[in-house]
Design a protein around this nucleic acid. Sequence first.
DNA 1: ACTTGGCACTCGGGTCGCGTGAGTGCCAGA
DNA 2: TCTGGCACTCACGCGACCCGAGTGCCAAGT
Lengths: 339, 339
Amino acid sequence: MLEDRRLAVLRAIVEDYVATHEPVGSKALVERHSLGVSPATIRNDMAALEEEGYIAQPHTSAGRVPTDLGYRLFVDRLSGVKPLSAPERRAIVQFLDGAVDLDDVMVRTVRLLAQMTRQVALVQYPSLSRSSVRHLEIIAVSSTRVLIVLIADTGRVEQRMVDIASPVSESTVADVRARLLTAVTGQPFGAVPEILQGFSDAFDPGARPMVSAITATLLEAVTERVDERVVIGGTAHLARYGEAFTLAIQPVLEALEEQVVLLRLLGEASVAPGITVRIGHENPVERLESTSVVTTSYGRGEQSVASLGVVGPTHMDYPGTMGAVHAVAQYVSKILEGQ
Amino acid sequence: MLEDRRLAVLRAIVEDYVATHEPVGSKALVERHSLGVSPATIRNDMAALEEEGYIAQPHTSAGRVPTDLGYRLFVDRLSGVKPLSAPERRAIVQFLDGAVDLDDVMVRTVRLLAQMTRQVALVQYPSLSRSSVRHLEIIAVSSTRVLIVLIADTGRVEQRMVDIASPVSESTVADVRARLLTAVTGQPFGAVPEILQGFSDAFDPGARPMVSAITATLLEAVTERVDERVVIGGTAHLARYGEAFTLAIQPVLEALEEQVVLLRLLGEASVAPGITVRIGHENPVERLESTSVVTTSYGRGEQSVASLGVVGPTHMDYPGTMGAVHAVAQYVSKILEGQ
DNA sequence: ACTTGGCACTCGGGTCGCGTGAGTGCCAGA
DNA sequence: TCTGGCACTCACGCGACCCGAGTGCCAAGT
């Protein structure tokens, strides 16, 4: 009973604070929620909650504000994932169905997510390491240069230009192309390095340098900076919070410009199933300690291939945000399946 | 003589204001610049400049601030393009030389430009309409789906998935691929629609629906949303200006999230040769009326293929910004030539 | 053992008034 | 045409002040 009411008080504080962005006092609380007790009682509960570290006062004689720990408890025990309304579901379908290629899917998804949550959205390109080779193309651009184009089953394309030391004939290129193609098509990217091992040995000594140059570049393409692309959108929403937050914008914008940071934010989500919520200092980037990150993974059918999510102030609408992130991830998965 | 000094005063005001971001008064002006006359004389000149609309006072008894018109005169007649220092030149080379593909070039360029100018940078992908077809690939993903991959000589890649009504054999696909390839390789994109006209007529009636589906998609890919990609970076710099500017951040960030807006900002630059500077209200986007846009075009050798530039507050360092934009555009052109 | 009303206390934020100084415009003299 | 002098304006910073929301604590009630 007692414990129950305290939790109800915490929930009320979080909800009010998220709605108003202003410290919430005991009197306002009993007025806006039917808690059935007097402000004085609430004050006692608040004192206890503060003692336990769930809420804090910005200064004496001000209302209470949830701490990161308070939000954590709220997310873990006091709220669920808010299901989307029908119009919202329809908006997702409508917005994403017109995409013509993977780039388009990524761009549309990030915009959609930003618009739905009114926060900064992040979408990671499908990871090569968790997809397979759909096609490999080798194109002779000149007699000493070839272009390698690698297409993943997720629709992702990587291309590299390779300079060849000595001129090669078209037919040699065609031969290499054909053999490489049969060797790697359909294989998971993780298996490619092994396949390429000693691949050039099977060719004429004359063609070997060229084959080695190609396999080396290919190897580099599939191993290095393999997951390095994250699309970001909705940064304008950062400026939407009170002045207090506006002043702290710069480090956040800076952090969000670094791919490494974005990957760290999204990276850990792809491990855990379900929706990951990192609140304030919990998240791995110090400059983002006043923000929360809500992420989840998406994939082709069962297999997860990458992550997406949003970054917003710690005082965000967690149930709503989680609902949007979840729904969008599901729909993107569905689309990728059809690609 | 008189006219000359007035211009010198305007230049001094612009330079000081750009350096300090604070209204500049007559006394400070004679102290910091050796104008050889007394503050009282400067005051007369200032009154005249204000009369003509080149400078303004935020309020009575404050210093003067350049107006958009003042900056315009400064850019047109009082300043040139500041050449880069040797270390800066080296930085460009070092930063851009490691790029592995076109995407990488675009991303690196936008970061470099943002870092050098400490402002928001924009880089447009090479326009398809001003480049040629390097390669076309048609890949059978299943018996009823083919993937079309189009590669421009600028390194840009477009891909589309096409659903075919009735199953087709691998050999048919190979045939279509071969014929299409010889038809379009090396052709400018502008000529592709004409080439595709009536292309399916030359095939068996049985193959025609599939060929039509492919050419239709191809046509769509080369005509629609053809120049639609602009990369943006350095938005964190927006938060670097005094509070006054920080409060006006949101409309700017919002405008910069819209591709259409970015294309309008960059689009007009590709017409005029040299460096285009749009100051404050001069630029075509209302929400950006407190910013200036410095752009120029880049290309493969002579031919311009797209534009790049920066967006910053009207009180920016014009000579330096123009120098950086110019130098980066030149180097990007050089790199593209080698692709 | 909780809950409640009462009460004194704290302190952030808004308002008012004032002094200061940078900056101006104008004028008379060089 | 330039210069020094002078009176004037006005944004800004500072301290004093008040107000009120909100708190903690305590004694009394259930």
